[in-house]
């Protein structure tokens, strides 16, 4: 269990989608850094990958939400 009751209570209030954001950020950083060597290029590519990953996952979430509303 998370170390303290306070932390658990606080974390329980965080919507599930928020836990995906750090994963998207780290994935974007790793994708960018494995495609480039120059730090400036890595920074630029991280933003591009954030756009792609966020866009794709956001799109999937919107479709799931819409399907959920229709059913």
């Amino acid at each position: 269990m998370p170390t303290s009751l306070l932390a658990l209570t606080l974390l329980d209030r965080v919507p599930g989608i928020a836990f995906g954001l750090p994963l998207v950020l780290v994935a974007a950083v790793v994708f960018a850094a494995t495609h480039h060597e120059d730090p400036a290029a890595i920074r630029r590519a991280t933003l591009e990958w954030l756009g792609w990953l966020g866009g794709i996952l956001g799109g999937v979430l919107v479709v799931v939400w819409l399907v959920g509303r229709l059913v």
């Binding site: 974390l11 780290v26 850094a33 494995t34 495609h35």
Partner: peptide
Amino acid sequence: FFEIGTLYTMLAGMLNALVIYDAFSGPM
């Protein structure tokens, strides 16, 4: 949190596959 923790740790391991590839053959 059992599923979220599992997802975080799985993704860390899977992303490391790309890091291993980068060490072996340089940037893609």
